[in-house]
Amino acid sequence: MNVYKCTLLSNTRLTESSHDLRVLAPEMKDARPGQFVHVKCEGFTLRRPISVCDFDGEILRLVVDRRGAGTDWLTSRAPMTVLDILGPLGRGFSADGNILVVGGGIGTPPLIYAAKSAASADAIVGFRTASAAMLLGDFSEVCGTVQIATDDGTLGAHGRVDTLLEKRLAEHKYDRVLACGPAPMLRACVRVCAGAGVPLEVSLEERMGCGVGACLVCAVKLKDGNGGTYMGRVCKDGPVFRAEEVCFDD
């Protein structure tokens, strides 16, 4: 982990609100699936945490959702812009064996790198609507089967990913499920995977400060294994946690 000056190679729009950035970053050689980088946005006090979508040893791929002025700045950079990137950060997925990745919306990008790194992978991805769907071609390349759900039924199954997940786990065997997406989706994955007896890892999102574990703002309540709880740091102890570690009740 360190701060690197990395050249932006390309910036393409994926959906109405998201961009696909490719950055030359051979220094990030240790970046693992599920880790993230903390990107400086000019004129802002805080960096923006972005999950690693893919990494081939040289080119770091980041899918960025435009959520405010900081990510507006980042997604409007032209190629050859030098970005100030802190990373790789956090604890990633156990991306080995035969896995099923489950993603929702802007939670789908880190699952590309996870699926690619595993021995074999299938995917279930959900989006609000067809025009918000992203990375479907990439999932097809790195996964055996890709199932899609949309909230409004404009693409794939009409409904939520947990319905597809429940069916899939009843018919196929996986070493592990890896999930990233909004909190209600993750809660549903916890319920379904617990019911099916399949280990689950979840990638959490929280507003971050330092990104390295020092400032304690991205707190998440975790189970200590003895009936008690403690506060963990999404940036340092996560963002990926074993589902049974996380208190989802809040």
Binding site: T45, R207, M208, V217, C218, A219, T229, Y230, M231, D250
Partner: peptide, 14 residues
């Protein structure tokens, strides 16, 4: 344990 999250918000220059 401290306060529940979110614990941080960005502001103009701070």
């Amino acid at each position: 344990d401290g306060n529940p999250s979110p614990r941080i918000a960005e502001t103009p220059s701070g």
